[in-house]
């Protein structure tokens, strides 16, 4: 109950601040003054990626992404292991919300890849729900092939682009 209240307070606080969504949503410059962690928390002894409660820790140490085979949205064993860690982290750090992005490599048509990305994001959400993360804390989005992170034209890059990335957000889900 207390946790819920705190989460709501964080939400309300942040709703008046600048957008905290990942930069790919818009053109907001960095340094908008919004801290990445819960603003209500007292100064932590650890900061950034060293702080186990930080989104940076989630992204770098827990692992924010899972990869998929060509044209597949089936989670691999390695992917499930990563998601087990994500579920644990999200349960511990219940102030945070998650936006799950689904992506595809460029070997496909635009519309199909949007739909495929939606499938991948949903596969991650369903797995996290099965591990106890409330679905109300998650939202999915597909970028299709619009946002590759690796740019070469072979499997070494394509395999990293076929991904679902869990973005930790202290802001709203819409």
């Amino acid at each position: 109950m207390r946790t819920t209240t705190k989460a709501l307070m964080v939400l309300l606080t942040l709703s008046t601040a600048a957008c905290t969504r990942p930069d790919r949503f818009g053109d907001e410059a960095d340094g908008s003054g919004v801290s990445a962690g819960p603003v209500a928390a007292a100064p932590a002894p650890l900061s950034g990626a060293n702080d186990p409660a930080s989104p940076e820790f989630f992204a770098q140490t827990i692992g924010d992404r899972v990869l998929f085979a060509v044209d597949s949205s089936t989670l691999t064993d390695a992917g499930k292991a990563t998601l087990d860690g994500q579920a644990t982290w999200l349960s511990t750090n219940s102030d945070y919300l998650a936006i799950i992005e689904g992506h595809a490599d460029e070997q496909g048509t635009r519309e199909y890849n949007l739909a495929l990305g939606a499938r991948r994001a949903n596969a991650v959400r369903e797995y996290l729900v099965s591990k106890g993360v409330p679905s109300t804390r998650m939202r999915t989005i597909s970028y299709g092939k619009e946002r590759p992170i690796e740019l070469c034209a072979d499997e070494a890059c394509y395999s990293k682009n076929r991904r679902a990335v869990t973005i930790i957000s202290s802001g709203g889900l819409s």
Binding site: E111, L114, A115, A118, R119, R120, N122, A123, E126, T140
Partner: peptide
């Protein structure tokens, strides 16, 4: 149009 819901389009 297409609508995606729960991973199904």
């Amino acid at each position: 149009y297409s609508l995606a819901n729960g991973g199904n389009t």
